[in-house]
Design a protein around this nucleic acid. Structure first.
Lengths: 246, 246
DNA sequence: TATTTAATGTGTAAAATAAACACATTAAAC
DNA sequence: GTTTAATGTGTTTATTTTACACATTAAATA
């Protein structure tokens, strides 16, 4: 048990003045936000990427990000990026992890806070500048610029875990959806096949899908019923629950 | 559906030069690490806190933290703080969340990355400077300085969730422990009572406890068998698993 | 308008997991 | 030697999860 127990004796507590000096004059670092923006289209989970223009990463794709302003809340910076890139304001957004290796960015020391967001692709389609931004199938994402592959992988894993604990998926669907669409979404996110009857049973048992008495239109087969997610009902139910499953 | 779809047209991709200028000259922010250091003693979950010396927060307790140096990896800063405060090097450490509200710190704009760590209290007891550092029962922690109460709450919740998915708890115990100690630990972390027979059955079924054929000493009742956690066995087992439970 | 197509809508049985529960045994303290 | 306070051990029940098949519907087509 080799425990070196000599704690550094610079254990003095810093005064407010010392801290202020450090905060104002030294030890400052550029801070950025990178967003993994997920969408769902053609029964596939997609991610919105931008072409990197840095020579070192020519032709590679990167996440959407920007530096955080000194007078801007961290979450606000993430929302700003989403608004700029998709035109959407009311977006599901979740912080995942902060990446802080000294040499992770070619422009110098930049610590980046990763968020993922879930958007309904139908709502923003017009806002893509075609040559720069592109929706990629998550399965074909590899070899991104900087450490963005690692950031992307981390966010996708987080999404896969979260979507099994909380009803996030609805943010990726239209307001009205069929159970088949919902199941396709879960199968795309988790990259698995699910039993159709058990899937239905499970979601009906949760009891926050509202049957809106409408049917799918323009499908070349028997149309399915349409539902919407009852957010209020879910919130009430959530308060009664102990565990984290939904 | 009021969706304002005018995406900002400042959509131009920044050149490396522009980014470098921003990174070097403007938009820099002080970055800190705050550690929620958990320990386990007297069958209670404890957290190591330091007395705040700032007038504004006189008498309140705060987490152990410091600014990140510009040439220091983020994780390295967290390990540095732990080494300074506890004298321990090989510590379980996990990043939880980054807190970035503009006005969260009285010394100016400081974004803080929160980590929690799990240490064996027996290993470091000598290193506490008595008047400044103190082990608090987590149940009595409230009203901390700055936004540290929120950071603490977030980290405790994260620990409670993680400990049900992965075998972290062993980091809080001596190398050799009885099943009663292990159960006490889980009950303290999760703040619940568990059935003793089911608890044993569950851990034996996991099959990474090694019976070392020793018994407890100096207990005023029938002594229990001692076990150790077989890390290698767990790693092998983990690779075969699909889900997140252990 | 009859037939084909491709999906929807529905229930039950088996398997796996989790929860509830009691008594004989042991070493130390008295 | 008796008391004390814990350890060690299995079975039954309830709950949750999984596996699985066929009649129905609307559109498309012949």
């Amino acid at each position: 048990m080799p425990k070196s127990n000599q704690a550094s004796q610079s254990n003095t507590v810093k005064t407010l003045q010392v801290i202020q000096t450090e905060v104002q004059n030294i030890n400052k670092i550029a801070l950025s936000v990178d967003c993994v923006i997920f969408g769902f289209d053609e029964n596939k989970l997609k991610v919105l990427l931008i072409r990197s223009d840095l020579k070192k990463y020519h032709g590679k794709w990167s996440l959407l990000g920007d530096l955080v302003f000194p007078n801007e809340d961290l979450d606000a910076a993430a929302y700003r990026i989403l608004k700029q890139r998709t035109g959407l304001s009311d977006v599901y957004l979740e912080q995942v992890h902060t990446f802080g290796k000294v040499s992770r960015h070619p422009a110098g020391r930049v610590v980046s806070v990763a968020y993922y967001s879930l958007i309904n692709v139908q709502h923003h389609k017009l806002n893509i500048l075609e040559n720069e931004l592109h929706w990629h199938d998550v399965k074909s994402v590899n070899d991104m610029a900087f450490d963005h592959q690692q950031i992307f992988d981390t966010c996708l894993q987080q999404l896969q875990k979260r979507v099994q604990e909380h009803p996030l998926g609805f943010n990726l669907l239209p307001k009205k959806f069929s159970l088949r669409e919902l199941q396709n979404l879960y199968e795309a996110i988790l990259d698995i096949k699910m039993d159709r009857r058990n899937f239905r049973k499970k979601f009906f048992a949760m009891d926050f899908l509202t049957d809106i008495n409408e049917m799918e239109q323009d499908v070349a087969h028997r149309p399915g019923r349409l539902y919407k997610f009852d957010f209020d009902k879910y919130e009430k139910k959530k308060k009664k629950m102990i565990g984290i499953d939904f």
